[in-house]
């Protein structure tokens, strides 16, 4: 990508989970790293997330779930992105996500899952290195 264009990221909270400390801290770190960040707020359906991602023309979607609903909601987002021909968007996730589920989620196209304790710098670096532009 050209160095002048800022990476655009949608940080989203799918489902009903209200734990948004992580999502907001990551959003802030990405912004401080020079990216343009749009934060959806709570209670987003997969449909709302995909629609926002397309409308905002983002390069990256970052989703966070701590309620255990990730296996129902993350794959749904991937499905909708494919249906919209928008699966070139880099998709990363975070939250309380067991190891076995991470394998499954990667199979359905989620690029990376960042668990508790991940340094912010690692997330910034991963996005910079893997974003499609």
């Amino acid at each position: 990508m050209s160095s002048s264009k800022k990476i655009r990221v949608l940080v989203a909270k799918p489902g009903l989970d209200g734990h948004d400390r992580g999502a907001k801290v990551v959003a802030r770190a990405l912004r401080d790293a020079g990216m343009e960040v749009i934060y959806t707020g709570l209670r987003q359906t997969p449909e709302m997330i995909v629609e926002a991602a397309i409308q905002e023309d983002v390069d990256v979607i970052g989703m966070s779930i701590l309620s255990g609903a990730h296996m129902a909601l993350f794959p749904k987002v991937m499905e909708l992105l494919k249906a919209e021909d928008a699966d070139d968007i880099l998709v990363v996730g975070g939250g309380i996500i067991p190891e076995d589920d991470i394998t499954e989620l990667k199979k359905c196209g989620i690029n990376e899952i960042f668990g508790p304790g991940t340094p912010l710098e690692d997330i910034v670096k991963y996005i910079r290195e893997n974003v499609n532009a």
Partner: peptide
């Protein structure tokens, strides 16, 4: 969470939760 937010289990937003 659906109970905490006042949705029955068959509500669209309850999906997966």
């Amino acid at each position: 969470l659906p109970t905490q937010i006042g949705y029955d289990s068959d509500h669209l937003l309850s999906q997966g939760e």
